[in-house]
């Protein structure tokens, strides 16, 4: 008797392109005054279980999320990041499995990969904010473009009207392949809901060719003090979270 849907993907495949993480972040990473975009779209459900490892469960309907940060200030200086996640569940908790990310600044890319397990490449991340629309363009060297979208018709939201969900980043660690749980706090200063339209999406270029967007949902554009918390949990990708969650202590990664 099967009760819940669970990922059926090959967990070891997550290691492809996953960063090596020798020492997880033990200090928070502050990104004050960060312009953020959070945009979700439903996707075709056919491969929803195959795209996730056995540790995770798909949402119904399956959804992926694009996040963009335009961080004017960080320990590495200003940078822009775009990431793609498959929204899912780990145990009872909502999570987003990172597919990959693009960062426009090499030092930030290296730091995000080595401390937080971002599977990241350097490239171009453009966030053009206008009065009535925001345009996003993401590209990596040698590729025509990974993602282009436009966010139209902004409507003001309250500061607490957006739900933010922690990420899981596949990473090769001394203890083995793990999903690094990255908890991100958002102290939202301004937020607007927009109509999200995808103009170009190269699923294979992001690293998961089976993602086919089907219904774009409203996106949020806002400004927040974003803080990536020190890592507290990692999970084995091959078993359910109830069995495979490991608390990160101060002594070892």
């Amino acid at each position: 008797m099967t009760l819940v849907m669970t990922g059926t993907g090959d967990a070891s495949r997550l290691a492809e392109g996953a960063p090596v993480v020798e020492a997880l972040a033990r200090e928070p990473l502050a990104l004050p005054g960060c312009v953020f975009v959070q945009a979700l779209t439903e996707i075709e459900s056919g491969p929803m279980c195959e795209m996730l490892p056995p540790a995770l469960h798909p949402t119904l309907p399956p959804v992926v999320g694009f996040t963009v940060w335009d961080a004017p200030d960080s320990v590495w200086g200003p940078f822009r990041l775009a990431q793609l996640r498959i929204e899912c569940r780990s145990g009872l908790r909502p999570r987003g499995l990172l597919v990959s990310a693009v960062v426009d600044q090499p030092e930030a890319a290296a730091g995000l990969a080595s401390r937080f397990g971002f599977r990241v490449t350097t490239g171009e991340v453009v966030l053009d904010r206008g009065y009535d629309a925001t345009r996003i363009r993401v590209a990596t060297a040698g590729k025509a473009g990974l993602f282009e979208a436009v966010l139209r018709a902004p409507q003001r939201l309250g500061e607490s009207d957006t739900q933010f969900v922690s990420s899981l980043h596949p990473a090769r660690m001394p203890r083995g392949l793990r999903l690094v749980q990255v908890d991100v706090d958002h102290a939202v200063k301004r937020a607007e809901r927009t109509r999200f339209g995808i103009e170009h999406f190269d699923a294979a270029g992001w690293g998961e060719a089976r993602i086919r967007p089907s219904l774009a949902l409203p996106a949020v554009v806002g400004v927040a003090d974003v803080t990536l918390r020190p890592i507290r949990y990692v999970c084995r990708p091959d078993v359910l979270a109830f069995e495979g969650t490991e608390a990160v202590d101060a002594s070892a990664a």
């Binding site: 819940v4 145990g91 009872l92 739900q163 809901r193």
Partner: peptide, 20 residues
């Protein structure tokens, strides 16, 4: 426990649709 697990896998409106 089963009921709680099934419930937690629903996609709640607030997760998908930012709204007051």
């Amino acid at each position: 426990g089963t009921f709680g697990l099934l419930n937690s896998h629903l996609l709640f409106t607030r997760e998908a649709w930012p709204t007051t």
